[in-house]
Amino acid sequence: MKGPEEFSCRVIEQDALAPDYYLLKLEAPELARNSSPGQFAMLRCSEGYDPFLRRPLAIHQVDRNKGQVLFLYQVRGKGTKWLSMRCQHDKLSLLGPLGRGFSFSAAGGRAMIVGAGVGVAPLLFLASELRAQGWDLVILMGARNKSGILRPDAFRECGDLIIATEDGSCGEQGTILDLLSRELAKSSFDKLFACGPLSVLKGVQTMSREKGIAAELSLDERMACGVGACVGCVCQGHDGSYLRVCKEGPVFSAEEVVLGE
């Protein structure tokens, strides 16, 4: 696997999918070629020193033929606000690909993908790669309301999509964990993949244990270096040691990690 590199990438386009949710398309041929699902990049989100740190963003999808990389993100503060205002032809500094991504057998199987809110960001790349390798997919998307259901059409191309919103404004009314529990009772799966808030990841971790299904969880953590050098972004491993989310993760097997508050 090739190590991360620093790139200056041109913005091809950027669209607001819903208030505060953006889809950013960059010209980044090397990154498109060398990334695997679940990996991320550190994007500089300022012209000066404020904000000072780069923002870790999951690689949402790549187009290796066109040399393009997509990022899907939510505006949460100053850095992502700045990023959302970049336009076509602007250049962005980016370090990637970073971290350990999802792992799956090339032999195929049946997988459940669980994406809550903007947690769907790393899952489209995963879904399309799994699909290409012959996996059967059931994809669960959940959010508070309709505006948090991001890129359902793109996901639908990769498998059976089931949507739940807490207010019932899109798909079924309920939480994504309600959906997961129901679908796991209905049929069997070889593997679970999930990304979303900690409460959802904990639910997936618990259910995977109960059902004896291997699960991989993509964690979100504030980072400084992104390459494993500063030891700033840690989660707790099962043996009590601290694991670097940027290096040993951001994707962990459900047995590896103890999820906190």
Binding site: P51, F52, L53, M223, V234, C235, Y242, G260
Partner: peptide, 9 residues
């Protein structure tokens, strides 16, 4: 955790 927190500059 958390071990890092961004501050102005």
């Amino acid at each position: 955790s958390p071990r890092i927190c961004e501050t102005p500059a």
